[in-house]
Design a protein around this nucleic acid. Structure first.
Lengths: 343, 343
DNA sequence: CTGAAAGCGCTTACAG
DNA sequence: CTGAAAGCGCTTACAG
């Protein structure tokens, strides 16, 4: 294919710059800048001419120069706990799919559920003067909150709801979801319903509260039936905790695992032990991760809308970065019970 | 704790700049620049004084200004196919863990195994003038290769080996690994060994070649026993393919799945169907992903060193970015057979 | 609606 | 080993 030969290349670097486009279009560089950014103060015909010149020269703006002059970059910093939880992979995919077409690059920081790491990552990311910030959860250290506020960078919190004015959230009620799946187990006639959890991050603890609220309401709550491990969530840990649970509480007739990987491990342990699910023990998980529908029996769980959360939070952030002030400060995208054969 | 009060803040933005540090240390800005970047042409005593001044003012360099002046950013662009394959999550973790302490931010591009997307992502990433590039595999479109070469950005390819001079690779032989796990099945006495694969990316096809080479060598190769699906790999797909396989080839006595998620799905399908593993059909997977050791029976598979690959490739890239020219162009980190009860 | 000037905060040669 | 000058490629006020 024929390559058009640019006419002007004044810079030493050989890079096509605003000035080159300006020269070709016969306007000043600042007009090119305005036209290309879609500022509406530019005469439409002129803007068209500029855009043609730009594409003819294959001009692409230099993000560094833009960042230096405008005092914010084209990056959006994203803080998530851990990619080994598939939940956050789905979230991230949706975020990137929404942000990329708008010209924003995603800067990913993995906190490993560690407040100190989160703080440190945030510091590093803020040095890059991101245009926006997407952080997981609403429960952060005082320093982290101060850093976010002090930066003046538009920020959206994901996965939880919130009620602090000025704090934007997109998620669902972890408490309500925990309560709903527990209620389902109660409705199935179970009386000794255990809660098995790992990691013990804020959202897991909110689900725990939902579980407690439900069982208290039915007069079925027994603190002894809670098995809480601070270890990272995994199938292997789920197996171990399930065995522990049955050993310590042989009368337990149902388990709510705080995440599907634990539940999958639990189901496999049940198979290994010859424990009939759901006849002897019913099992429920959380998040409806990949593979849960393949288990034996298929896992009852809570489908959480992480793709929708990713997209909605990114859209909200785009609005904030455009300088708009959207009214909704806490967007609830709900959840869905996936009732399968394990309960 | 007492906060030292900075003495000089000339800039309008309120940001602490090189000049502020220079003023406090009583030297010129360029000397500060050199001292802070660890250039060895600076008098040690002076450098120390500068560093103290910098930390006293809590100075942090502006990445945008640095990028604009030096013509490359502090970003390392990473191109990976898909985070829903846990393999790449582990790789990415190791890369970030190695690059971050060296002051490099990771820019992640997810190609979805699509050469066009890869090309487009690369273009976008190169606009940010990354200091380094980490790409998955060695098999890329001509345009992608041209973009990489033309950019002059140091680049390391991961997950495969290579023999092209000037192209740096860190990985292992996918072919040898495919061959080795197949050989194991042969040694177990199996005669009708199937290969079940999804996605059909270059590395999967290299494993297929290893499988073929092994079976041909033993006079056991039958092209009909290959089940190749272009769909994305998943447990659900593994279940479906396993059922297809047994229906179409009832005499099949072993299966090598190209990835553990497929194999896990296959094992669950076997449980559902009452197919005895390994007595009736032996099963082997690839990658040793999380959960494979928990299956019923535990899955025989190939442990691939993605953490080591992530770290080694990042170290190699750091050397290249420092301007060094390391001798090893293709680093083989090997693999390990994990022989468990499924075979 | 368009432009000339100044500046964002650094680093790259070039001197000494 | 240190520094003065120039410039990286944009955008932000400020004029007109």
């Amino acid at each position: 294919m024929p390559t058009p030969t640019p006419t002007a290349r004044p810079r030493a670097t050989g890079r096509v710059t605003l000035s080159d486009v300006a020269a070709l279009a016969g306007v000043s560089p600042i007009t090119v800048s305005r036209a290309l950014r879609g500022e509406r103060t530019v005469d439409p015909a002129l803007a068209e001419r500029v855009k043609e010149a730009a594409s003819q020269l294959r001009y692409t703006p230099d993000p560094a120069a833009r960042a230096l002059a405008s005092r914010h970059s084209s990056h959006v910093a994203v803080l998530i706990p851990m990619l080994s939880n598939a939940l956050f992979v789905d979230l991230l995919e949706a975020v990137q799919r929404t942000l990329r077409p708008a010209g924003y690059q995603t800067l990913i920081g993995i906190t490993h559920y560690n407040p100190d790491e989160e703080e440190q990552l945030l510091r590093e990311q803020l040095q890059h003067r991101p245009a926006g910030l997407l952080v997981t959860g609403t429960d952060h250290s005082a320093t982290t909150r101060a850093l976010i506020e002090g930066s003046g960078v538009p920020c959206v919190h994901v996965m939880e709801l919130g009620n602090t004015p000025g704090v934007y959230c997109v998620g669902f009620s972890q408490h309500a979801a925990g309560q709903a799946i527990t209620e389902h187990l109660v409705q199935r006639g179970h009386k000794r319903i255990a809660f098995v959890a790992a990691q013990l991050d804020p959202r897991t603890l909110q689900r725990a509260e939902g579980y407690r609220a439900c069982l208290r309401q039915h007069g079925l709550y027994d603190a002894g039936l809670e098995l809480l491990s601070p270890l990272p969530s995994s199938m292997a840990l789920g197996s171990v905790l399930f065995e522990d649970l049955l050993r310590e509480h042989p009368d337990c007739d149902a388990v709510f695992f705080c995440n599907d990987d634990l539940a999958q491990g639990g189901l496999l342990a049940a198979l290994r032990l010859g424990v009939a699910v759901p006849q002897r023990v019913a099992v429920a998980g959380f998040n409806d991760l990949s593979g849960s529908d393949q288990m034996l029996p298929p896992l009852t769980t809570v489908r959480t809308p992480r793709e929708a959360i990713g997209e909605a939070s990114a859209r909200l952030l785009l609005a904030l970065m455009r300088g708009e002030t959207p009214p909704a400060h806490s967007i609830d995208l709900g959840f869905e019970l996936m009732l399968r054969a394990s309960s």
